[in-house]
Lab assay of single mutants.
Amino acid sequence: SIKEIEKEEIIKVLKEVNFNKKLASEILGIPLRTLYKRLKEYGI
């Protein structure tokens, strides 16, 4: 599903940037606030 793909992509990017959420949100092209929402939604 799209949610699974998105979750995997978020985890992959977070690992690449050593869990720097600000940098991860910039790489993913989403606002930091949205990233936090996704992390909560996906239980990351």
Rank of each mutant, 00 (worst) to 15 (best):
G29A: 05
V13A: 08
Y42V: 05
T34H: 08
I44Q: 05
K15A: 08
G43R: 07
N20R: 04
E8F: 12
I10H: 02
A24F: 01
K21T: 15
I11L: 14
E8H: 13
L28I: 04
E4I: 11
K22A: 09
K12Y: 05
Y36K: 15
I44N: 05
K22Y: 09
E41A: 07
V13Y: 02
K7G: 05
K22H: 09
K22N: 06
Y42P: 02
S25Q: 02
L32F: 03
A24C: 08
E26F: 10
E9R: 15
K12G: 05
F19L: 03
K40D: 08
I44V: 07
E41V: 05
R33K: 15
E9G: 08
L39T: 02
I30N: 00
K40H: 14
L32I: 09
K37M: 12
V17H: 06
I10R: 00
E4P: 09
I2T: 13
K3N: 13
I11F: 10
R33Y: 12
K7Y: 12
I2M: 14
E41Y: 07
R38V: 15
E9D: 10
S1G: 12
N20H: 05
I2L: 14
I11T: 05
E8Q: 14
A24P: 00
I30G: 00
R38D: 03
R38G: 03
E4R: 09
Y36T: 10
V17C: 08
V17G: 02
E16C: 11
K12D: 04
L28K: 00
L35E: 00
E16D: 10
E8D: 11
L23H: 07
E26M: 13
P31N: 11
K40C: 11
S1A: 13
I44Y: 10
E9Y: 15
R33F: 10
K40I: 13
R38I: 15
E41G: 05
L14Y: 04
E41L: 07
Y36L: 15
I2R: 12
K12A: 10
E6D: 11
I2W: 10
V13D: 00
P31C: 07
E26L: 14
E9W: 15
N18V: 04
S25N: 01
K15S: 08
G29M: 06
I27K: 10
E4T: 11
K7M: 15
V13H: 02
E6G: 13
N18H: 10
N18R: 09
L39K: 01
N20S: 06
I2Y: 08
I2V: 13
K7I: 15
N20K: 04
A24N: 00
L14C: 03
V17D: 00
K40P: 02
G29T: 03
